[in-house]
Design a protein around this nucleic acid. Structure first.
Lengths: 337, 337
DNA sequence: AGCATATGCACAATCGTTTGTGCCACAAAG
DNA sequence: CTTTGTGGCACAAACGATTGTGCATATGCT
């Protein structure tokens, strides 16, 4: 085991003091009038023994950890995995590390994660919240820069970046109605989550007054839910609906499975449209129309926003007005409706 | 902003010294003969002002961070997301936090992640490696407990936990052959990765001498790859092969898409089998046979192994003999072959 | 020569903990 | 009345970095 080399070790070996070594290695030689020769000798020795600063000590002293906490409701959900991937890449590009916590859709675990983040002195937090009310997040947001992603709270001053779920669902539903579909089944995800509520609202508003029968069923962003609800809806009557709006790609998979089992051809017998851009929708047969969310953009904006908050925080400036932004999804039409 | 309360603050308010407060709050009151009354007053005050220890300072002093580094080749890949989810949950259950790094299949980024982990003083590392040779991992493993997961190196002393990809592929291929399939196309994932190489080996061994024509094509665990290779293979001749073995669920999706586009009915015209248990394979039509990997078990064993290494490391004991374990996958037969 | 200004660096405090050691008091024992 | 024991706590040194300040020596200027 390579004895871990500290500033003190280098100081001893070069004959300079710890403070001088520190200033050299942190690039502050100029500000403190360190001689050329000292810089030379110290950098040489540091390189020779592969010095790497102890980030824990650095964090303690500077109160900056180069770390951002990310809490998501379930990293095994492809949607959150994709979003996390984007956020992590963005942070990495700026030299920041990621502490990841999975709240497993539990408010309790979410709280613990947020507290742990503070205890560890993260420089900022990005949260896809599960809590039903914003109090705790707001409290945390007082202490450390925090940006909500994908989900948000109403009437909160917390900054957030989400896609416009209302508009997305509205577009999709309107498209179906314009196409002439008359009996539309919407299979939703987790009812309490803001994106889901907004999608329901958009869906209902779009069909309102257009002479369309409709029903909203389901309770989870899962394959099983889509399967169960579609089976239930069509089992008695294959023509119960002429279109299905699946609120996520997972729900869609379940739905299509159910339709096929019942001998209903999606795209022909029943129009189908989905939410999400899960990569394989174009590989379904027929390819599936959907509302695509600009996740990359949302992730980037969230990180940008976080960094501007962090910047202000560092400088002791008053917090900038909270960025609360909805990015627009797009409707991608294929052959399933 | 609640002034963050430190040991010193509590010490001042209760009239005790910092060391006494520390011993009380870290549960060492007994060992150091702290009086009942002191324990009482201190805990009361700590609770009153919601004291939470500064984990950074704690880490610096104790050289324990309650943190494990996890590096994966791509968190947006559902397979790694699932595995990460399992590992994170396991760590969480033991009170450990997770620093997650995404190497994006790059050796360079993997190195950086491993170095960063050390700089931050993680207590242990779980890695799904991308490097082609083990040197660097071995070096890191000298300093901090490290366990490889899912992928491993040959002739390494590093502990690893992987599924037996050779056996899995062998089972699947043997099943196909026994069923009477004569011309089998295998579409592989990333050729250099150990799981892929083992699958290829298992596949070839299983068909060896059984009078079966075969071909191994492809180069990535992606939908696109599956689609491209299947199209290429069947475009000229729909009967070029009578079975396809997709080395991952993503590859499978692409393959099925291609087959359908070509008017080939999977399960009837061409047998299909896959690797992975991606949740929706049972919802395909027909449901897809596959080799299922016991990911939960693998993740748990990896974490268990890591903790025993960490335990030894803490106690200064010699490292236990490296656990190098292959867990057995299972063949799940459905209607696609 | 004498004073101001630069130059080059070391000292020491600090971040918030943990932990080895030593001091004091009081009680029991001789 | 001194010894021995022990209960109860404070002191201070770490961990490894950053950073304000101060003290020399050297150089410039008049």
């Amino acid at each position: 085991m390579l004895a871990k080399t500290t500033l003190a070790a280098i100081a001893e070996r070069t004959g300079y003091s710890v403070s001088t070594v520190s200033r050299v290695l942190s690039g502050n030689a100029g500000k403190y009038r360190i001689s050329r020769s000292a810089v030379e000798r110290v950098t040489r020795e540091a390189r020779r023994c592969g010095y790497r600063p102890n980030l824990v000590a650095q964090s303690l002293r500077t109160r900056q950890s180069q770390t951002v906490g990310l809490v998501v409701p379930g990293i095994d959900n492809p949607f959150f995995a994709t979003l996390s991937s984007i956020v992590i890449a963005q942070l990495d590009a700026r030299g920041y590390h990621t502490l990841l916590a999975d709240s497993r859709e539990s408010e309790e675990e979410e709280r613990e994660a947020l507290e742990m983040f503070q205890d560890r002195g993260v420089d900022g937090i990005i949260a896809i919240p599960v809590a039903s009310s914003p109090e705790f997040h707001e409290e945390v947001g007082q202490n450390v820069p925090l940006v909500l992603l994908d989900r948000y709270f109403q009437k909160t001053t917390l900054p957030y970046v989400c896609t416009d779920n209302y508009a997305g669902a509205y577009m999709a539903a309107k498209y179906l109605v314009d196409k002439g579909y008359k009996r539309i089944l919407a299979i939703q995800g987790m009812p309490s989550s803001m994106p889901n509520r907004e999608r329901v609202r958009g869906f209902l508003d779009a069909i309102d007054g257009r002479g369309v029968e409709s029903k909203v069923v389901g309770d989870a962003f899962s394959v099983e839910n889509g399967n169960r609800e579609a089976l239930a809806a069509f089992a008695g009557n294959p023509q119960a609906y002429d279109a299905v709006f699946a609120f996520s790609a997972t729900i869609l998979i379940g739905t299509i499975s159910a339709l096929r089992r019942l001998g209903i051809a999606e795209g022909k017998d029943v129009g189908v449209i989905s939410y999400d851009n899960n990569g394989f929708l174009d590989f379904m047969n027929p390819p599936v129309s959907r509302v695509e969310q600009p996740l990359r953009e949302a992730g980037k904006i969230a990180v940008d926003t976080l960094f501007s908050l962090m910047e202000a925080h560092r400088s002791g400036l008053p917090r900038p007005a909270p960025v609360q932004q909805l990015v627009q999804p797009t409707l991608v039409i294929r052959e399933s409706c």
